[in-house]
């Protein structure tokens, strides 16, 4: 049984195939549903291209769900947090103005 994960992008075109580092949420029903993981994973728009892969559902910034899910194979689970300044994305946008 394939597991299902979800990730979020601003626009669907932002997601690239191949080996990527991305945050995913585990959609497996149960108390750990939506558990967030930071992973290095191989992803493809064609789930059949990824041997022993799982399902990756993708939502845009506006909440729209991509009708066709991608395939994902987690290669490595990374640290649940990454070094940096919280809300750095907001501060960067503010500095640019």
């Amino acid at each position: 049984m394939k597991k299902e994960y979800q990730t979020f992008v601003r626009q669907f075109k932002d997601l690239k195939e191949g080996t990527q580092k991305l945050f995913i949420k585990d959609l497996t029903p149960g108390p750990r549903k939506y558990d967030t993981k930071y992973v290095r994973a191989e992803i493809s728009f064609n789930p059949e291209k990824i041997k022993d892969g799982d399902i990756l559902r993708i939502r845009s910034e506006s909440g729209a769900l991509l009708p066709q899910p991608w395939g994902i194979k987690i290669l490595e689970e990374l640290s649940e947090s990454v070094p940096g300044k919280p809300w750095e994305d907001v501060y960067k946008a503010m500095k640019k103005s």
Binding site: R10, F23, S81, G84, W87
Partner: peptide
């Protein structure tokens, strides 16, 4: 609060009444 770490935050159904926003670089 971890001031030197980023943890993904959201997105949620938000107060304007829509599912909006991406995973933000949130506070750990």
């Amino acid at each position: 609060i971890l001031t030197d770490q980023i943890v993904p935050d959201g997105p949620f159904g938000e107060y304007p009444g829509y599912r909006s926003g991406t995973m933000a670089e949130g506070v750990g």
